[in-house]
Design a protein around this nucleic acid. Structure first.
Lengths: 218, 218
DNA sequence: GTATATTTCAAACGACCATTTGAAATCGTT
DNA sequence: AACGATTTCAAATGGTCGTTTGAAATATAC
């Protein structure tokens, strides 16, 4: 029996790692099996052997990324129920941003790409996987908005928060240079940005709640 | 001389229209020349004849979309300088969201896709084209944040606002169905959402400004 | 140690698609 | 009407890339 310690990683595993990285980087079409296999240091035929075809490798890589990301950045569901809603919202936002900003986390990069696609390979699965998180966030928002909140207000606030977080994905790769100044949203800034999003969003929600109180059913 | 009225649209023009639509829908790789030409009701060779190759057609279609979108939704730069900053910000946000939400506006759909790409065909041109808008928005934000605002605060608020707006792009195509309820951000809601983004963002900015006043150079 | 199953690999295959070609059709001008 | 220029088109070409194949290598079991 070969020493399982000496062998760094099984081929199947190496393929998953390489695939999730490259699919996140280039998208389904632009990523070539040749490139993935080169990164994984294996032959192109191994994709067929271990995953049947490219599409299946894509799905498995996406699942793999989902699990790895959660392992690296567990969502802070462990908070006591009596924790103030503001704190719980902050926890959720920070966890989300951590998973988005970490260059080694690929799940949301793939999700982001898929969401832009009209006909997406992952759409049904994605909805199932992400809905619980969405639901929880919506309940928190409803709690913060108060009893007069309408469903649409909750929906809009959700979009506001998630939109801010996801924007990191698009901004990660971009470098604007105006004259000699550079606009760089560095990844080290992710934490600071998360704090900002928390404050910004809590203020936005509070304003809506106050307006509701002044004239309910707005 | 043929009656230019009877002839609906020149081939070159039809190609631009079809291309910007399909490129926005599927991205550069997934869009095939065959499909574009079918939509434009012309032969595939006409792409070579009118645009040399696919990449050039892509660039021209993108430019075309930019102009068309601005024609349909002029950015409200015409506001008097003494208009309150809040109103000017609202104008900018609404114009941006209109261009993003309109299903016949394709410029930002293409931009969005390109931003997600690590190595992008449009990156340099895009920066030039978009920087002015970014600059103007940043100045408005700085004005609203007050004299104690740091560059980073402005940067973060910019990201918050643009992030909210761009989120519409990803949400346009998505249909979540939990049980039998559907989560649909309909395009008719775009206006309402724009109003929401304005209120939400003004509240966020105001909160930061007040905090700065309380303890400057935070 | 031998046999069976699993995994790897180089090479070939085939589909898809951007691009080219050269001829036909159409247009613009005189 | 006739000529040259522009535009269209069907078909061919060539490259990329996902997939397959069958044999070699390696691991596993007896």
């Amino acid at each position: 029996m070969p020493d399982p310690v000496k062998q760094p990683l099984k081929t199947r595993q190496r393929l998953l790692v390489a695939a999730s990285r490259i699919f996140a980087e280039k998208g389904y079409q632009d990523a070539t099996i040749a490139e993935i296999c080169e990164q994984a240091q294996t032959n192109i035929a191994s994709v067929n052997y271990h995953f049947h075809d490219k599409e299946n490798l894509y799905l498995e890589a996406w699942r793999h990324a989902f699990q790895e990301d959660l392992k690296a950045h567990p969502s802070d569901d462990g908070l006591a129920a009596d924790t103030p809603a503001e704190v719980r919202l902050a926890g959720r936002i920070k966890s989300l941003i951590a998973r988005i900003a970490d260059p080694d986390s690929h799940f949301f990069a793939i999700v982001h790409r898929e969401m832009a696609q009209q006909t997406s390979l992952l759409q049904q699965i994605m909805a199932q996987e992400i809905n619980p998180e969405r639901q929880a966030l919506n309940e928190l928002i409803g709690e913060l908005l108060g009893p007069d909140a309408t469903a649409r207000q909750i929906q809009f606030c959700h979009a506001s928060i998630v939109g801010q977080c996801f924007h990191l994905l698009t901004v990660k790769h971009i470098r604007f240079n105006e004259e000699n100044r550079r606009y760089v949203m560095d990844l080290k800034d992710a934490d600071a940005f998360a704090d900002h999003v928390v404050r910004f969003s809590l203020a936005g929600i509070a304003a809506l709640r106050d307006a509701n109180k002044r004239r309910p059913q707005a």
